[in-house]
Design a protein around this nucleic acid. Structure first.
Length: 429
RNA sequence: GGAGAGAUGGCCGAGUUGGCUGAAGGCGCUCGCCUGCUAAGCGAGUUAGGGGGGAAACUUCCUACGAGGGUUCGAAUCCCUCUCUCUCCGCCA
């Protein structure tokens, strides 16, 4: 959510921003709503002021034993007028709030104006795209051939967009989770969090999934609970409605969680394989920082995610999302895209964003500096470090051998209990 | 599921015969003083959100004692509903 006063005085740049983001949103109602709200608020506050004043007088009169009945009956009218106005005002506040809640964040000035992902500038590329002397297979074929991925039976259990991992496939997923968590906690200074995998609507609103994107979420019937689409939601909301002390910033959290997404509107897209599932695992990095440090922290956070790809020796590139591709709450986002030889393309494996104060304002996450008066909103950031299922995809496709087996990356071997190769024979064990 | 207790400021904790209590007291924190370090001591300050005025420092008003509603001229204090926390019993991984 943007700051009300900012919107009030920057309506034109808001309109330009919406256009750059390819948003079709009319903000012309804003000015009227805002003025009406303020007008009504002023009248109401004046009435309240009067009531407070006279009420004190009544107390004083009674204390002296005087008759206050005339003043009291006069106050009855004032009070009922206040009550009426108090009933009306929320309509305007809520309508204004609803409008404010669906306005996306202002992109950072460094974000390129563009239409869609085609316009995302590539910032850097890492690793050699190895030439294979055989025709590389897509990961779903590798996985099914090895018996480590089973999509057919998964659909029996839950339908499409689910997978069963088996044997060393399951082991590989688990190894990657531990590998990532260890690096981020031991080397990058993050505190490990294991949050609830379901959260209430206030949490979903805090990070921006609600009210605009409810159709992307799985809701628990009969409860005010949703399955989390990313650990960003529970972990960012840890400090919802809190005032942190300036000295404890920046706060770094890392969390492994499964993620649940309805993938509404993506019918027919990525129907094969692990790329787009209703449930997938992710290790997520979340930061709370001072405003002036958030862009440095975004660079560092992205490097932390890149480190995982480097250790696994997976070629990737980093792009900066243009205005048309930028997510609703983000001011700036770097995507890490891993090379997938089986599909001959780069595929998003991490998304690292600075939300500036956008989420903090919704979630009321503030901090108080030493010796300074008042509070300030923190900046929140997060990034995948990494999407685990897609990392499995990348390993299967990049480390596949001509005979259909898959070599385990060197740095991962210890996490695989010394296993260095997944072959159909070995997996039967 | 049954029976109780509770929810107050960054924290602890008063206040429940309704009326200068935005909230005693303490801790913490900030600034100053004092003491040749440290500790202790003294003085002052220290909730947040919003509206108006001001370039700003600041100032003024409104709101908030878990949330929502009610009673009343007036509610932290009385009534109702909800949420959450804790204790005991039952059930259960």
């Amino acid at each position: 959510m943007l700051d009300l006063k900012f919107v009030r005085s920057n309506l034109d740049s808001i309109r330009a921003m919406l256009k750059n983001r390819q948003y079709d949103l009319d903000v012309s109602r804003f000015e009227d709503l805002d003025q009406e709200r303020r007008k009504r608020l002023t009248v109401l506050e004046e009435l309240r002021h009067r009531r407070n004043h006279v009420t004190d007088k009544i107390a004083a009169m009674k204390k002296r034993g005087e008759d206050a009945s005339a003043v009291i009956s006069e106050m009855k009218e004032v009070s009922s007028s206040i009550k009426e106005r108090e009933k009306e005002l929320p309509r305007f506040v809520e309508e204004l709030n609803e409008l404010l809640m669906v306005i996306p964040n202002m992109p950072h000035e460094s974000v390129v104006v563009g239409k869609d992902e085609e316009d995302n500038p590539v910032i850097r590329t890492w690793g050699e795209i190895g030439k294979m002397d055989f025709e590389p297979l897509p990961h779903w074929e590798i996985g099914e051939n090895l018996g480590i991925l089973d999509f057919a039976r998964a659909s029996r259990l839950a339908g499409s967009r689910f997978a069963i991992y088996r044997g060393l496939g399951a082991r590989l997923e688990r190894a990657l989770i531990n590998f990532m968590l260890d690096i981020h906690t031991k080397e990058h200074g993050y505190t490990e969090i294991l949050p609830p995998f379901m959260v209430n609507s206030a949490s979903m609103t805090g990070t921006g999934q609600l009210p605009k994107f409810e159709e992307d979420l799985f809701k628990i019937k009969g409860w005010d609970l949703y399955l989390i689409p990313t650990a960003e939601v529970p972990v960012t909301n840890i400090h919802r409605e809190e005032i942190l002390s300036g000295e404890e910033l920046p706060v770094y959290y890392v969390a492994y969680t499964p993620c649940f997404r309805s993938e509404a509107g993506s019918y027919g897209k990525d129907t094969r394989g692990l790329i787009r599932q209703h449930q997938f695992n992710k290790v997520e990095l979340v930061k709370f920082t001072r405003p002036e440090e958030s862009y440095d922290e975004l660079e560092k956070l992205t490097l932390n995610a890149e480190e995982i790809l480097k250790r696994l020796e997976l070629p990737y590139r980093m792009v900066s999302l243009c205005t048309g591709d930028l997510g609703f709450s983000a001011a700036k986002t770097y995507d890490l895209e891993v090379w997938l030889p089986g599909q001959n393309l780069y595929r998003e494996i991490s998304s690292c964003s600075n939300f500036e104060a956008f989420q903090a304002r919704r979630a009321e996450i503030r901090f108080k500096g030493k010796g300074t008066r008042g509070t300030e909103l923190v900046h929140t950031l997060n990034g995948s470090g990494l999407a685990v299922g897609r990392t499995v995809v990348a390993i299967l496709e990049n480390y596949q051998q001509a005979d259909g087996s898959v070599v385990i990356p060197e740095s991962l071997k210890s996490y695989m209990g010394g296993v260095d190769l997944i072959s159909s024979v070995k997996n039967e064990k």
